[in-house]
C-alpha cells in the first residue's frame, strides 16, 4: 500500500512544481476537447433545435437514431475515423492522423449526439403556454423561434457541459487517433493508461486528480443548470 501513498505525495509535488510533462498532457486534453466542443455546438445546437421545435415526417425515427448514438462506443468511432483519415483512406490527404485536430474530429462525432439530443429535449420540454404567450405579445414566427432557443438556454448549456465531460474523459479516440505521442498528442487519459501500465503511479495519480477536479467542476455547473431549468 505504501506505493499509493508515495504516489499521491509525488503527484502533489508534480502538480505544485508545474511538471512540464504532466501539464503538457493537461493542455493537450483541453485543446482537443475545446475544439471538439465548439464544433459540436456549432453543428449540434441548430440540428437539435430543428429536431425539438418543428414537426415533420420521420421526426420520431430521427430522434430514436440520435438517442441510440448517445451510446456510441468510443473505439468504434476511433476505428471509423482512423479508417477514413489513415494515409490509405479517403481523407488521408488531410494529414489528421496522430494530430490534435484529428482527435477533435473523432471527439466531435462522439459528442454530437449528446448535444443534438439534449438540445432537442430542452426545446421540446418548453412550457406549452410559451408559444401562445409570445404570440399574444406580437412575436412573429422568427422571433418566436429565437425566443424558444433563449428560453431553453439552461437546457442547452447543460447539453454542452455534459458533452464536454464526455470529451475530456474519453480514452479510446484519443489513443487510437492521437497515438499517445509524448509532448504532442498525449492527453490526460492516455497518459494515465500508459503510466499505470508502466507501474508509474505518481504521474497517473496527478493527472487523475486533475481529471477528477475537471469532472467535479463540470458536474457542479451541470447541477446549477438543471436547477435553473
Amino acid at each position: 500500500m505504501g506505493y499509493i501513498a508515495e504516489g499521491v505525495v509525488t503527484a502533489l509535488k508534480l502538480l505544485v512544481r508545474g511538471d512540464p510533462e504532466t501539464y503538457s498532457a493537461v493542455f493537450t486534453t483541453l485543446r482537443a476537447s475545446s475544439i471538439s466542443i465548439l464544433a459540436s455546438l456549432v453543428i449540434g445546437i441548430p440540428l437539435g433545435f430543428l429536431l425539438g421545435y418543428y414537426n415533420f415526417p420521420g421526426k420520431r425515427q430521427i430522434r430514436a437514431l440520435v438517442d441510440t448514438l448517445l451510446a456510441l462506443p468510443t473505439v468504434v468511432v476511433g476505428l471509423v475515423v482512423y479508417a477514413l483519415i489513415t494515409r490509405r483512406g479517403p481523407l488521408g490527404g488531410l494529414g489528421l492522423l496522430f494530430t490534435i485536430p484529428g482527435i477533435s474530429v473523432a471527439q466531435t462525432i462522439l459528442i454530437l449526439p449528446i448535444v443534438i439530443s439534449l438540445t432537442a429535449t430542452a426545446i421540446s420540454n418548453l412550457d406549452i403556454r410559451f408559444k401562445r404567450t409570445v404570440m399574444t405579445l406580437g412575436a412573429d414566427r422568427r422571433r418566436t423561434a429565437i425566443t424558444a432557443l433563449y428560453e431553453s438556454r439552461y437546457g442547452v448549456l447543460a447539453a454542452a457541459v455534459a458533452a464536454y465531460g464526455r470529451a475530456i474523459g474519453e480514452v479510446g479516440v484519443s489513443m487510437m487517433i492521437g497515438g499517445n505521442i509524448k509532448w504532442h498528442t498525449r492527453t490526460i487519459t492516455t497518459a494515465i493508461a500508459l503510466e499505470t501500465g508502466k507501474g508509474q503511479f505518481a504521474m497517473g495519480i496527478a493527472l487523475g486528480l486533475i481529471l477528477l477536479l475537471l469532472a467535479f467542476i463540470i458536474n457542479w455547473i451541470l447541477q446549477i443548470m438543471k436547477r435553473k431549468t
Partner: peptide, 14 residues
C-alpha cells in the same frame, strides 16, 4: 400587435 391577450394561466419568460 394591436390586439393582446392575457392568458388564463400566465407564463413569464425566464
Amino acid at each position: 400587435v394591436s390586439v393582446t391577450m392575457l392568458l388564463q394561466e400566465p407564463y413569464l419568460l425566464k
